[in-house]
Design a protein around this nucleic acid. Structure first.
Lengths: 222, 222
DNA sequence: TAGCATAGAATGAACGTTCGATCTAGAATA
DNA sequence: TATTCTAGATCGAACGTTCATTCTATGCTA
């Protein structure tokens, strides 16, 4: 059993943690370059600077490495949203940070791994569960933040409106991740400005409960 | 050489086309279920109802099958946009069709393959080229459509504004594709209504040239 | 009979994983 | 302090499997 129990000396734990991080960094890079299934343990171990067999001291199998990468990536996301929610002037912070968020989400290398994860979620139930759990956390944070921002405008919405607004915001951000790959000529700075504008619009918009609940358009036929 | 030249009899061509379609359908299904690299020729051939070796009569190798799948998927997309542009009452058609578009893009099975393709585009240059060429066509269609829709409102925008609005619209659609995977509880019909609303807002919004060209916010630090 | 369609076995490379051998650093002992 | 002991860290070869691709043989059709 490579996983250390209670009796481990701190220095040993630290070494193990370092090794694990090494492996995950190498794996992330390989997954980015070759995809989850295209990346081999041989390549990962080579990039991590250790033998192939040694990988199995820290991870049960390749699936476990994928799971750990997904978890680590999503943990980072959840933490970011928690920080935003902890800010004092939520409304302006939200608008200001949205620019930073756009620049970050449009980073091509990072986008590659994120999309790999989402694609994997459509076929790997365990990855799907992890992704959805993290999404719940992030969305809850964002909903809470939006609620406070809108309350600063004297608006008191029902939960549904907040959820829907949050979903649109999330869709724009995650959509930009896809856009930057489909269209690499996209001006990131300009998109950041536009998203700020859209955020202001959404924060200032009237309660979406007023929107028609059903439509008699072409969607009904589908 | 398995690729047939000019001298082929129509019935043979038809047979070959049918076989090719069979293979592509099976491959699409396998790529959806296992990913590009996780899907084996053995599985594809089994689902297509033929031997593994026979696949190579119609495609040079696995890469060629991937390329053909990507091409076919994108051709369909390009055709859809061309149809929209050919419509007479462009503005209302655009708004009405956006609902249908939302429902279609939120189909989980189809989303899986589309995301697989985008993820592959981040690491496979040939797939990237195909994806970007198709995106150019689609976006040009959408820009032209938006121009006509806004002209119906008496608005005459410069190219940059149209491009930017189009990118935001595209981001929302492609973002919803990701959202429906991250959050399967999302109400598709409701999202269709909301997107219609957003489309109306964008078509009616003033020229985005008025928006500040640069921002002195946190994005500048990045 | 000529030529294409098809099957399925054969091939060699690459894969994930296992395993026994070696190394190393610190604890225990003398 | 010098020596021995020991457990985890590390290696790299080996295993069985699966992969993409090729090859050969057989059927079918015109």
């Amino acid at each position: 059993m490579p996983i250390h129990g209670d009796g481990c000396i701190p220095s040993e734990c630290k070494r193990a943690a370092t090794r694990r991080t090494q492996i995950l960094d190498a794996a992330a890079e390989c997954f980015r370059s070759y995809g989850f299934h295209g990346a081999s343990i041989a390549r990962i171990s080579q990039l991590a600077g250790m033998s192939t067999g040694h990988i199995y001291h820290y991870f049960e199998n390749k699936e476990a490495i994928i799971a750990a990468i997904v978890q680590r990536d999503l943990d980072h996301l959840v933490m970011m949203w928690a920080e935003l929610r902890a800010s004092c002037d939520v409304r302006e912070t939200m608008i200001a940070l949205s620019s930073k968020g756009v620049i970050e989400i449009m980073d091509t290398a990072a986008a590659g791994l994120k999309l790999e994860i989402v694609a994997e979620a459509t076929r790997n139930p365990e990855v799907a569960r992890t992704v959805r759990a993290a999404d719940c956390c992030c969305m809850a944070s964002l909903i809470q933040t939006l609620r406070i921002a809108r309350q600063a405008d004297g608006k008191h919405d029902d939960e549904t409106t907040l959820i829907e607004m949050t979903e649109v915001i999330a869709a724009i951000f995650e959509g930009l991740m896809v856009r930057t790959i489909r269209n690499p000529t996209l001006d990131h700075q300009r998109m950041a400005v536009i998203v700020q504008h859209v955020m202001r619009q959404i924060i200032a918009s009237p309660d979406w409960g007023a929107m028609p609940q059903d439509s008699h358009d072409m969607a009904a036929k589908a």
